[in-house]
Design a protein around this nucleic acid. Structure first.
Lengths: 111, 111
DNA sequence: GACTAATATAAACTATCACTTATATCAAGT
DNA sequence: ACTTGATATAAGTGATAGTTTATATTAGTC
């Protein structure tokens, strides 16, 4: 599953926003986003699974609890895809962008 | 439609990659991505529409041609959402992140 | 060791979304 | 004016992804 598909779901984005602040147990996440979006525990649990399986979250078992934490790699991938576009709104990237356009830097094809 | 939903589709991402380099006519885009993904002209045209309607592309009419160019605002929105997470992989954001965590900066709720 | 609490998985249903074929629009050329 | 070329829109269809109910798993408790 592509990183952008993972972020396509509002529930998953909300979970990541929560994990950005601090780790949370599965139950705590269910309580918050389950309440906000009006969905059940299994629904949230499946979202946690996709976050896990695609490099957006990590889990550590604590007894019967599962503690979820943010995994940067998924979001980093998104950030990386975004990089070449950044010159359109960040002035400081303009010079670099011009150079790239001129082909002065070799780039890997389709990464 | 949310910005991340727009980026959820691989065809639309590919179109944006093309527009990152230079403007392109609808026909040119159809030729390239239509060929790469094996989809028809109307299919590509619909993707162009979602890109237009969600602030990812702009069009200018040139006779019977439609010239598409990148619109930064859509991607900028994504970049903005990503900002608070950036500290997880960019060391220079760590200090700022700590400050935010301490609540020294006021933030708008749910933007 | 049975019971409960916390979480995950399975199966079934539904709605959304991307695709196709068919058609409309409309500018340019002859 | 008619035709052609470039593009968009409409309607219909199929697949996928998120949801629900039901159940499995496993750790802690009495």
């Amino acid at each position: 599953m592509h990183a952008f598909d993972v972020l396509g779901d509002p529930v998953r984005r909300r979970i990541l926003e929560l994990l950005c602040d601090h780790e949370l147990s599965s139950g705590a996440i269910v309580e918050i986003v389950g309440g906000e979006f009006g969905i059940t525990q299994p629904a949230v649990s499946q979202h946690l699974r996709t976050l896990r399986e695609n490099g957006f979250a990590t889990v550590t078992e604590e007894g019967t609890r599962r503690i979820y934490a943010l995994n940067a790699s998924g979001l980093e991938e998104v950030d990386h895809w975004l990089a070449p576009f950044r010159r359109f709104w960040e002035p400081k990237f303009e010079a670099l962008a011009t150079e790239i356009a001129r082909g002065k830097r070799k780039r890997r094809q389709r990464d």
